[in-house]
Design a protein around this nucleic acid. Structure first.
Lengths: 245, 245
DNA sequence: GTCATTTTTTGACGATCCGTCATATAGTCA
DNA sequence: TGACTATATGACGGATCGTCAAAAAATGAC
């Protein structure tokens, strides 16, 4: 039977699973939900449809698996960002950069997310994968919340009356999510005068932190330099790949 | 031929068109993209499928028509909000309330928007309806931009270095869009500790305005009272319908 | 090397739903 | 009333999902 780690057969199966996800990602990127076609996946990989269905019980399972792949990457970026050595607000800035890099490195994640959150697709996915996505989301939320709490503990942040840690995290999340969603679905931004939506998002992110009186404020500190430092120290590789110093 | 405004026949056709949209909205709300079924629409209204296709050339046209219906409502709410008599920041607050009411009154709009912005659906819609949605979006953007510019003119707002009017509008748009998207697609919020996402959004909206130093700041003015005043003076009806004093 | 047994793969098939179009029905007007 | 036009119908072709009985491949005992 199976030797210590994985049978040859098991390895083959795992490799095939990854190949399925690879071609699926391309198809999805190029043609959206309708562009992802089970027959074409099988044809492309020179397997039969039945074999593909042996890996994923339905189209939706493939899509959510793709989402999970990139959510893992995001998680990792967040974890590293939160470890930046600096003031709490600087660590929060690092998380902002992490999100930015995530969007640049995995540009199709938002499309995939939009699809799985759409219509009854969510309900056609397996309980197992659904809880996996929830875990990733909760963990990311938790990491950011930790930085906020740290800021409070250190006395660098005093939340306005009635505002909770979670409210603030939610706001930053919503801003980022909304900004990147709009960026990837709306071709009118330039018409509307938003030339550099990424920079605009950065600025608004800082506005929220300033509005919450998170010291040192933008006006009291050179955060452009902080961004450069974080980029160099924590995300040198990612920045090169993303082409954003 | 046609009398003055509309033939009886024309009126009938228009009424039927509205009926199609009505049942479509219900189907979409209940079952998402897949829940919207051309045969079922026909069956429900006791017309043949061909007749439905006489009104809308494809499923996607129905969906974008639904989006346009609600975008008209939003436009109207924005227009009225911008007319509130008060400081520029108070008018901005009125717009915030307008978005909030929009979400409460037309809860399925975000689902519809997510669908039309998904995959190749956007490209299957008619040029005509696509430009219509763009116009609505640009006009809304323009209204908000106007309030910001007014704040600058009056000296109540001085934008931070490098930030444009459009950047600020984009930020507020992204925050709202993201917040309501998350609210309607994520059932983990309560788990994460965000009990009242609408209130959280309001607070973060104010954070951005505070961060931009838009006077008077939250700390200098009773904006809870302003919300109540706007609700009473501009949106009494909507607030009643939305059940939010 | 052979053959029985288990595992894996296959692709034809049923079902669903979109969009079309030849035909049927209803409406209009001389 | 009847000829002609406008509108409505639903059977049909095509695409794609997911299934499953049958075929092929792998395994292992002798």
């Amino acid at each position: 039977m199976k030797s210590s780690p994985l049978t040859r057969k098991q390895r083959e199966i795992q490799e095939r699973q990854e190949k399925i996800l690879d071609v699926s990602r391309t198809m999805l990127r190029e043609g959206g939900y309708h562009g992802l076609n089970m027959d074409r996946i099988a044809a492309e990989l020179e397997y039969s449809k039945g074999t593909i269905y042996g890996h994923f019980s339905c189209k939706e399972e493939i899509i959510i698996a793709l989402a999970i792949q990139t959510m893992e990457k995001r998680m990792e970026l967040f974890r590293r960002a939160a470890l930046f050595r600096g003031s709490s607000r600087e660590r929060m800035t690092a998380i902002g950069l992490a999100v930015e890099l995530f969007v640049l490195l995995y540009p199709d994640h938002f499309m995939v997310e939009r699809i799985i959150r759409t219509e009854s697709i969510w309900l056609k996915t397996s309980e197992e994968r659904r809880t996996a996505t929830n875990h990733f989301e909760n963990d990311c939320f938790g990491i950011v919340g930790g930085v906020v709490r740290d800021g409070i503990t250190r006395g660098e942040l005093v939340l306005p009356d009635g505002m909770s840690v979670e409210d603030l995290v939610f706001g930053l999340w919503a801003l980022s999510h909304g900004a990147y969603t709009i960026m990837t679905t709306n071709d009118q931004l330039v018409v509307q005068g938003v030339r550099e939506p990424l920079d605009a998002t950065r600025r608004n992110y800082a506005m929220i932190l300033d509005g919450a009186q998170w010291r040192p404020l933008s006006s009291e500190h050179d955060y452009a330099a902080v961004y450069r430092q974080i980029a160099q120290e924590i995300f040198p590789d990612e920045c090169r790949r993303a082409n954003r110093g």
